[in-house]
């Protein structure tokens, strides 16, 4: 299967997850967008040497995955495939920062290793937050939420059109690549020359399609403005959702919960 087809399947998969009906899915998209942003800002605001403090934040993805009926393994797979840039850069930390920061008996942990693990944890948390947002809300609802949150209308309309036509154009692209690969017996990879003309061809088709869409829009009274009506209701439950999570984030940020917990436990057992 080509990259294009699997990418389409992927996006379709998240779409299907978003079509469920769970307490999480029923929340107003604005509530979920705001909470996800608060979560990410909280995660990245931790010091890079603070590992234990980050752990309670795993509560957020875990609860949303469980209540939102999302398949954890599927999401984990997507996480692992995600852009490795952070890890490539992060892996330098243990090499560059060898200051011993933590000693457990004879073993000393350098600051570099701690910050590397911290990068890993941040990566897991932030990326899962984005994936969970999409798979509990759906792309179009996220766009609608953004419109209501005062993101310029042109941009959200673009996002919606882009998302609508990804499926159409990627399908076209994958047909063209298939037609090429069936005839390209010798080489398994496309030369830049072939690639350029294939992509040029795809581009011409895209421009023609845009023209036809424009015609279809015009014949239904399009005047440059795309109007949307989808009622959104921000109810008590939504407010509660945002408030409860934000309160938890602030709490987790303000005091190191695992540290306190550990002390309490050791204090009791001592």
């Amino acid at each position: 299967m080509s990259t294009i087809e699997s990418a389409l399947l992927d996006m379709g998969g998240l779409d299907i997850l978003a079509a469920q009906n769970t307490p999480i899915h029923r929340r107003d998209p604005r509530a979920k967008v705001l909470t996800a942003l608060a979560f990410i800002v909280t995660v990245v605001s931790f010091s890079k040497y603070d590992l234990s403090g980050l752990l309670p934040l795993f509560l957020y993805p875990v609860v949303l995955v469980a209540l939102g009926n999302l398949p954890p393994r599927y999401l984990l797979g997507k996480l692992l495939l995600a852009s490795p840039f952070a890890l490539i850069i992060g892996v330098f930390n243990p090499l560059l920062d060898r200051t011993i920061l933590l000693r457990i008996g004879p073993v000393g942990l350098s600051g570099g290793w701690i910050s590397f693990v911290s990068i890993l944890l941040r990566f897991l948390l932030t990326v899962s937050a984005a994936l969970i947002l999409i798979s509990t809300t759906g792309f179009n609802a996220v766009c609608l939420a953004l419109t209501r949150l005062k993101v310029p209308h042109v941009l959200t309309v673009q996002l919606m059109l882009l998302y609508r036509y990804i499926f159409v154009l990627a399908e076209e692209a994958s047909r063209m690549v298939r037609a090429w690969s069936l005839r390209a017996v010798k080489s398994r990879r496309m030369s830049p020359k072939v690639f350029s003309s294939l992509v040029g061809q795809l581009l011409l088709r895209a421009v023609d399609r845009a023209q036809r869409i424009h015609m279809a829009m015009l014949s239904r009274g399009f005047d440059g403005e795309i109007r949307l009506i989808r009622p959104l209701r921000f109810g008590m439950a939504d407010a509660l959702f945002v408030l409860a999570w934000t309160a938890f984030f602030v709490l987790a940020r303000a005091c190191n919960l695992p540290q306190l917990l550990g002390q309490a436990v050791l204090g009791i057992t001592r």
Binding site: R212, S219, R220, F222, I226
Partner: peptide, 28 residues
């Protein structure tokens, strides 16, 4: 004039069926 185009993918450009059918009336 209600014009229905050959390729429905050109005609249906909105995110959902509902919004697409509402596109015309909203423009009116």
């Amino acid at each position: 004039v209600g014009m229905v185009f050959q390729d429905p993918d050109d005609q249906l450009f909105m995110p959902t069926v509902y919004e697409d059918v509402a596109f015309g009336p909203l423009n009116l």
